[in-house]
Amino acid sequence: MESVLVLDFGGQYNQLIARRVREAQVFCEVKPCTVSLEEIRRGNYAGIIFTGGPASVYAEDAPRAADGLFDLGIPVLGICYGAQYTAYTLGGVVSPAAKREFGRTEISVKPSLLFEGVPKDTLCWMSHGDQITKLPEGFTISAESSVCPVAAMENRMRKIYCVQFHPEVMHTPEGSKMIHNFLTRVCGCKGGWKMSSFVEDTVAALREKIGDKKVLCALSGGVDSSVAAVLVHRAVGKQLTCIFVDHGLLRKNEGDEVEEVFRHQFDINLVRVNAEERFLSKLAGVTDPERKRKIIGEEFIRVFEEEAKKIGAVDFLVQGTIYPDVIES
């Protein structure tokens, strides 16, 4: 399955970039920029997209990707900070801009695979205080604005393309076309991926990996653990047991609703643990929100462990984590 990696450098639009890629019917994953070179190699990605970010690339604590990434030969699209990071890493110069650009900006584009089908003069969304002031060797300018001489640059031979603006936002009218051009004309992606096929592929992969072994899931009723539980159940059915720790902090009747959905609608093996008194006694008198969070998390694990021991030996533990939590963790 063809896939693209979105490397997160701390930008606020990382999930939106991933959405645009999926809208082009190409599967993608979002991972922190600190992911290892070996993990990137194993991913066999058709392309990599660098997100924006609030840092300055020349700062000592600026986020950086693994050394050697540009030597993998994988096509790269750098967006905003990602463009500056590319320039800086490959020997160019990034400096504070004499005039910062924020908001809608008109740019002029030059002939490029990235801009095929895009009018020569087009609007985009800029949001940057630094800019590329010297190109790395082998790069050419492919777009400019009245105050930003390097609104886009590229090294067509190495399949590295960079834009100072944000093609992923709706304020860049031709942005989706630019991302589509990168995916199809630069990365060679054919498209055709759909969310339904992702579910089918994931269930098949789980069934093959788990075989006839037992699986245990800590179910909170939230979207992440719930989706994970249903996917595994589709794959192995009654081999899965879910432990639902009801700590008494859910909305009114929500614990009953979770039990109804998973025990009766999905017919999943469900163990409901009513631990309301235990949790509330631990939280009594505690006012600091962070301390409350830690107490709830610690007690949840302890209750889960106690119930898991009653079930006996299992072979796999299910964990579901939504993308924002993966990045934050």
Rank of each mutant, 00 (worst) to 15 (best):
E2Q: 15
E2D: 15
S3D: 08
V4M: 14
F9Q: 08
Q12C: 04
Q12R: 01
Q15H: 09
I17H: 02
A18G: 15
V26G: 11
V26H: 07
F27Q: 04
V35E: 14
V35P: 11
E39D: 15
R42Q: 09
R42N: 13
Y45W: 12
I48D: 00
F50S: 03
G52A: 12
G52L: 08
G52Y: 04
P54R: 01
P54I: 03
P54S: 09
A55D: 11
A59R: 15
P63F: 01
A66C: 15
G68D: 06
D71K: 12
I74M: 06
V76R: 02
G78E: 03
Y81V: 10
G82V: 01
Q84E: 13
Y85F: 15
Y85N: 08
Y88T: 09
T89N: 04
A97K: 01
A98Q: 14
A98Y: 06
R100K: 14
E106T: 12
S108A: 13
E116N: 08
E116Y: 02
E116Q: 14
P119S: 10
P119K: 05
D121E: 10
D121I: 12
T122E: 04
T122C: 14
W125C: 09
H128G: 11
G129F: 07
K134N: 10
E137C: 10
I141H: 08
S142K: 02
S142R: 03
V147L: 07
V147Q: 02
V147M: 03
V150E: 06
A152S: 14
M153W: 01
M153L: 13
M157Q: 15
R158Q: 15
K159C: 05
V163F: 01
P167W: 00
E168K: 04
E174I: 05
E174Y: 05
N181F: 03
T184M: 01
E200M: 05
T202Y: 12
V203Y: 00
V203A: 05
K209A: 12
G211P: 12
K214E: 04
S220V: 09
D224R: 10
D224M: 12
S226Y: 05
V230C: 09
A235F: 00
T241G: 07
C242H: 07
F244D: 03
F244T: 07
V245R: 02
V245E: 07
V245H: 02
D246A: 06
H247E: 00
L249I: 01
N253V: 02
G255T: 09
F262C: 06
N269M: 00
L270S: 04
L270V: 09
R272H: 03
V273T: 13
N274L: 13
E276P: 05
E276I: 05
R278I: 13
R278H: 10
R278P: 09
V286N: 11
E290C: 08
E290A: 10
K292T: 11
R293C: 09
K294W: 01
I296R: 06
G297H: 06
E299W: 00
I301S: 06
K309C: 13
K310F: 13
D315I: 09
D315Q: 08
V318W: 03
G320W: 01
P324V: 03
D325V: 04
V326K: 05
S329K: 03
